[in-house]
């Protein structure tokens, strides 16, 4: 790991001021991606700005049909939260499948969503649950948030503060985990908002997206059989040593079918 300066601000304003003042700063959340990246020298910031000291970035709040989760909330806390389990159980179930236990004890919602790893789990929930991403100065709708591989609507130096998820009538998340890393080779979250169906896909493309063709047929008929009628093209899908684009396209349908089956059982 290269040498860097370390800062631990106690407010978002201070963190943003630091980012502007230093030569090449990076924000550190739970560090479960950034620290391995630094160790491999794939990133070499002059300054690391640790966000763990900012109290306002933590916390879970349930209001009517929405759940607001602070960016610094760790995966284990989302998985274990009695409040989230009560009103948005699919989010707890998804958080409980991220990485492994030790990673879930450190990794954070904001870190995952700001990084936008194509194989991360949370992005599927952000798009399928019609979430709103909040920063200090603005809100970004889920549909406008994910841009490309590791690229989001966040501006340099902008800090994700919280994410507000809408609670569907029912929902289910299924993923095909990479057997070694537990990253999603493909993950699909199907959410039913009183008949309005949203399908969020992660792992398949450069970033999470809504599978609108699947949403349309599932709005007509919410069944496993309906999924079979949809063609999922593999154009633009990821291809690597774990899975070809064609296989990922196949997995999108399989995971959607499994999620729909789970959702109908619930």
């Amino acid at each position: 790991m290269y040498q860097f300066n370390y800062h631990k601000p106690t407010s978002v304003e201070e963190a943003q001021a630091l980012f502007k003042a230093v030569e090449d700063g990076m924000f550190l959340a739970g560090g479960q991606t950034l620290i391995p990246t630094l160790k491999q020298r794939l990133a070499a910031p002059t300054d690391v700005i640790d966000l763990s000291g900012i109290a306002e970035l933590s916390g879970i709040e349930v209001r009517d049909d929405r759940v607001s989760v602070g960016a610094f909330t760790r995966h284990a806390d989302v998985a274990d939260s009695a409040e989230i389990r009560r009103v948005l159980p699919v989010l707890s179930a998804l958080a409980g499948q991220i990485g492994d236990g030790q990673v879930r004890n450190r990794g954070t919602l904001g870190g995952s969503v700001a990084n936008s790893d194509p194989a991360a789990d949370y992005p599927a929930a952000v798009v399928a649950l019609g979430a709103t991403v909040y920063t200090a100065s603005r809100s970004i709708s889920a549909d406008d948030y994910f841009k490309d591989l590791f690229e989001t609507a966040l501006e340099p130096g902008e800090i994700l503060s919280r994410i507000e998820f809408q609670c569907p009538t029912r929902a289910a998340y299924r993923k095909f985990p990479n057997p070694a890393s537990r990253y999603a080779t493909v993950g699909v979250l199907v959410a039913d908002f009183s008949g309005d169906i949203r399908v969020g896909v992660t792992g398949a493309g450069p970033c999470a997206f809504r599978a609108t063709a699947l949403e349309e047929v599932l709005r007509e008929q919410l069944s496993v059989e309906a999924v079979e009628t949809v063609e999922v093209p593999d154009a633009g899908f990821n291809s690597d040593l774990h899975a070809s684009a064609e296989y990922r396209a196949h997995l999108v349908k399989v995971m959607t079918k499994r999620a729909v089956a789970d959702l109908l059982k619930a």
Binding site: G31, I35, P36, K39, Q102, N105, R106, A180
Partner: peptide, 29 residues
């Protein structure tokens, strides 16, 4: 492994298991 995979470096940080090869000492001050 030193790459956050194997868990041989697991310790308890404020009571919970973490991979100490993927935590900066500065973070746990």
């Amino acid at each position: 492994c030193d790459t956050s995979q194997c868990g041989a470096c697991t310790v308890h940080l404020d009571g919970r298991g973490v991979k100490s090869c993927t935590v900066l000492a500065a973070q746990v001050d």
